[in-house]
Simulated assay, not measured.
Amino acid sequence: MQKFLLLVCVSIGISDTVLVESAATVPESHNVIWGARSSRDVLIKREIVKETFKPLRIVSSDYEFKQKSDRNPYPRTITQIVVTDQYTDGDGGYATLKSGGPGMDFAVIHLKSQRGHGYHFTIDIYGQ
């Protein structure tokens, strides 16, 4: 009976290890969401931002969203920003909110690639 129990414990321990290893190797996109959207929000801007790779270098830039102009004296307030990484294999870039964002009428998003790769993001900005 003790040998049978030992065999069951060993087989469970091996299967747990295999499951942990397979889950850790799954590549993911680097999607980011700032703020929260309600049913009254509208899509203010959708932008596709893409930068090609440079060998052995990190590519980065700032995406600026501004609404104030002579045509639009009353800008909308941003409620949510959704940055979707189009690279689903884990090689995509990273997005960070540098200034502005939800609660404001502008946003500056810093986009950065991994070394030796480019980036390809879809940026959706919602507001009221």
Score class of each variant (00 low, 15 high):
Met1Trp: 03
Lys3His: 10
Phe4Cys: 11
Leu7Trp: 07
Leu7Pro: 01
Val8Ala: 12
Val10Tyr: 06
Val10Ser: 13
Gly13Val: 11
Ile14Pro: 07
Ile14Gly: 10
Ile14Val: 15
Asp16Ala: 15
Asp16Ser: 15
Thr17Gln: 12
Thr17Arg: 06
Val18Glu: 09
Leu19Cys: 13
Val20Ile: 13
Val20Phe: 09
Val20Arg: 06
Glu21Tyr: 05
Ala23Trp: 09
Ala24Tyr: 06
Ala24Met: 08
Val26Ala: 10
Val26His: 01
Val26Gly: 05
Ser29Thr: 06
Ser29Ile: 07
His30Ile: 00
Val32Ser: 06
Gly35His: 04
Arg37Tyr: 02
Arg37Trp: 00
Arg40Ile: 15
Arg40Lys: 13
Asp41Asn: 10
Val42Ala: 11
Ile44Lys: 01
Glu47Arg: 03
Glu47Trp: 03
Ile48Met: 10
Ile48Asp: 09
Val49Asn: 01
Val49Asp: 02
Val49Glu: 00
Glu51Thr: 08
Thr52Ile: 11
Thr52Asn: 14
Phe53Tyr: 12
Lys54Arg: 14
Pro55Asn: 14
Pro55Cys: 12
Pro55Lys: 12
Leu56Gln: 15
Arg57Ile: 12
Arg57Phe: 09
Arg57Tyr: 10
Ile58Phe: 07
Ile58Gly: 03
Ile58Leu: 08
Val59Leu: 09
Val59Glu: 13
Ser60Lys: 10
Ser61Cys: 14
Ser61Lys: 12
Asp62Thr: 14
Gln67Glu: 08
Gln67Lys: 00
Gln67Trp: 01
Gln67Ala: 04
Gln67His: 03
Gln67Pro: 00
Arg71Asp: 14
Asn72Lys: 06
Asn72Gln: 05
Tyr74Glu: 14
Arg76Asp: 11
Ile78Phe: 01
Thr79Ala: 10
Gln80Leu: 11
Thr88Cys: 10
Asp89Val: 11
Gly90Glu: 02
Gly92Leu: 06
Leu97Val: 07
Leu97Tyr: 00
Ser99Cys: 02
Ser99Met: 01
Ser99Asn: 00
Gly100Glu: 03
Pro102Val: 08
Pro102Tyr: 07
Pro102Ser: 09
Gly103Val: 09
Gly103Phe: 08
Met104Asn: 15
Asp105Ile: 13
Ala107Arg: 03
Val108Ser: 05
Lys112Ile: 14
Ser113Cys: 01
Gln114Pro: 02
Gln114Ala: 06
Arg115Leu: 08
Gly116Arg: 00
Gly116Gln: 04
His117Met: 10
Tyr119Thr: 05
Tyr119Gln: 07
His120Val: 05
His120Met: 10
Thr122Phe: 03
